[in-house]
Design a protein around this nucleic acid. Structure first.
Lengths: 164, 164
DNA sequence: TTGGGTGCAAATCGTTTGCAACAGA
DNA sequence: TCTGTTGCAAACGATTTGCACCCAA
């Protein structure tokens, strides 16, 4: 768990005149225990492993808090369930590539893309706020060989594309 | 209503061994009557104006058909309701900019963006499939003057950014 | 004729909410 | 103490489904 982010959450809670509770701590720890994306139900499961007393309602009430604090983002991975991404603190501008062959998710950053999006928004007469890019793509290697070196042993992979 | 798209839908229905029905025709016409995005419930409303006999269940059963036929796309406009976009036939590569000040949606195309996305996907070792880009942005003019010339008299605006 | 299509209402499922008990500050 | 917080269960709202009847082919 990232202590700096936890401090930001605690500060946010205090500034709003809210209270620091055991359940909120447990939910926070569950959300930021690792880099995996999760659904509300998955967060409940993870939280119960830390504090079995935490209820579904409290999880559902805490997620919007984490989002309002700017620590968590809702992302669209396709499918019917809402997913949440705890990685925007360390990687503020990442986007998602979803392998249509195996469903795994690759988080990537590309400086060219950030610049281009910024230009587009300005040319349209706006000031940039947030953007979310989801790319679905096919993994040729997986299709041809039945496996895919990029994805072995990881549900989630991160790539930083160097400018060139 | 676009006759070419209608022909494609009819051909799709026939090829799948399904039947051409009055309700499916009405739902199709409602979906492609104009370029506005819509939710399932809005599509039901529009369809009832054409054929009052059409039921909610049939609308919900027909939307996946239109998507499978490649004529309609689900899009993420933020918020809790699913929205559908009938404009990918005429504008296959457009993305969405959502004004956080007034909520209106601008569809735009940018060739540079398409090329860059293609490059990114290949550099990550994949073959491009589909992508969806949603940008949230602030309209300075609206904030400062209380109005916004780009958006007056239109819920949806389209822009094509020339390469330069 | 016949198997797919439809409308209706009930069921489902993720999420929200009312309320009484609880607990930080 | 004084409010915000919680757990529970009921409520909610979008979507799906079972079933009897309907109708396109």
């Amino acid at each position: 768990m990232n202590q700096e982010i936890k401090d930001r959450f605690d500060a946010f809670v205090k500034k709003k005149g809210l209270r620091k509770t055991g359940q909120r701590d447990a939910i926070f720890r569950a959300a930021f225990a690792n880099e995996e994306h999760f659904t509300a139900e998955e967060l409940l499961e993870r939280t119960k492993a830390i504090d079995p007393n935490t209820s579904r309602a409290t999880v559902y009430r805490t997620i919007p808090l984490l989002i309002e604090a700017g620590l968590l983002r809702e992302i669209d991975l396709g499918g019917d369930l809402k997913h949440y991404d705890p990685n925007f603190n360390d990687h503020p501008d990442h986007a998602h590539l979803i392998c249509v062959d195996c469903g795994k998710v690759i988080e990537f950053s590309d400086a060219n893309l950030q610049v281009l999006e910024d230009c587009i928004v300005r040319r349209l007469g706006f000031r940039p706020s947030t953007s979310s890019l989801r790319i679905e793509a096919c993994c040729e290697q997986l299709r041809q060989t039945g496996t895919c070196e990029n994805l072995i042993n990881a549900r989630l992979v991160r790539r930083k594309l160097p400018v060139r």
